[in-house]
């Protein structure tokens, strides 16, 4: 699994990082501290046909992004 640490970045940077990350076939763990970026990244990944699980830990959001089976 590839980890993308987008904490401290605000949109569109996390979204751009995810867009670049999705080019490979690997599952992705994206970490962000922005609710806005979480929503944008979740919407974008789902639109691209990926499944997304979001968990929240100490102010950070972890998005597990997998290829939908």
């Amino acid at each position: 699994m590839k980890t993308i640490d987008a904490r401290g970045f605000s949109c569109p940077e996390p979204l751009l990082m995810l867009k670049n990350g999705l080019k490979s076939d690997e599952d992705i763990l994206l970490m962000t501290d922005s609710k806005n970026a979480t929503q944008n990244c979740e919407d974008f990944a789902k639109k691209k046909g990926f499944s997304v699980d979001v968990t929240q830990t100490e102010g950070d959001y972890h998005l597990q992004i997998r290829k939908a089976k």
């Binding site: 401290g8 970045f9 751009l16």
Partner: peptide, 12 residues
Amino acid sequence: FLNKGFTLKRTQ
């Protein structure tokens, strides 16, 4: 520039 990697770095 954003697509080429423009960034003002992380916030804290």
